[in-house]
Design a protein around this nucleic acid. Sequence first.
DNA 1: GGAATATTTGAGCATGTATTCATATATTGA
DNA 2: TCAATATATGAATACATGCTCAAATATTCC
Lengths: 94, 94
Amino acid sequence: MNGQQFQALAELFSAFSDASRLKIIASLSAGEKNVGTIAQEVDLTESATSHHLRGLRQMRLVRGRKEGRMVFYSLLDEHVEQLYRIGKEHILHG
Amino acid sequence: MNGQQFQALAELFSAFSDASRLKIIASLSAGEKNVGTIAQEVDLTESATSHHLRGLRQMRLVRGRKEGRMVFYSLLDEHVEQLYRIGKEHILHG
DNA sequence: GGAATATTTGAGCATGTATTCATATATTGA
DNA sequence: TCAATATATGAATACATGCTCAAATATTCC
């Protein structure tokens, strides 16, 4: 692991380091959803939700599938759920 | 998972969301070390290292064992290395 | 084309964070 | 006791981050 790789790893964990984004990830772990639905479920404005989704998309943790005027987001990678699940275990029975 | 739990989980991941702290964790995954040694290995001042170790200690991710005037730190929990390892895999072969 | 709906974008602001510097505390050994 | 060493602490600062608000873009339906 060189300096850049440590930086990249820090950025990966940063994606999980906010309660709103974790709620989004938790919501998407139940299946793909469009932005408005996510926003409602996690209790954020659609703008804030969209900003978070952009970050998650840039980190390649979610992907968006456009259908009509809606965009359906889903988790992109098994590691995403794996990290979420292990962290959750640590919190709940740690 | 309620709001407080999402917040706690976010704080857990925040501990991993900084390259310097990840280097400290990586260094400690090879075994316990005192502050000066860690500082040297991860190329931080001892003060900055100590600040980070305090945070990690408060999160119960590391513990310090005092021996004379040195304090030897080590990883506290299997989840710490597990999270680090899975994140690393994601970065390296993701 | 024009209204309605869904999402995105960028600026601005308030809050959080990592580091540095100076200093404090604790321990050892002369 | 005094100097030297190891670590911790608190204030200050520079930078990052999350949210809001207003506005832009894209799509559908009339």
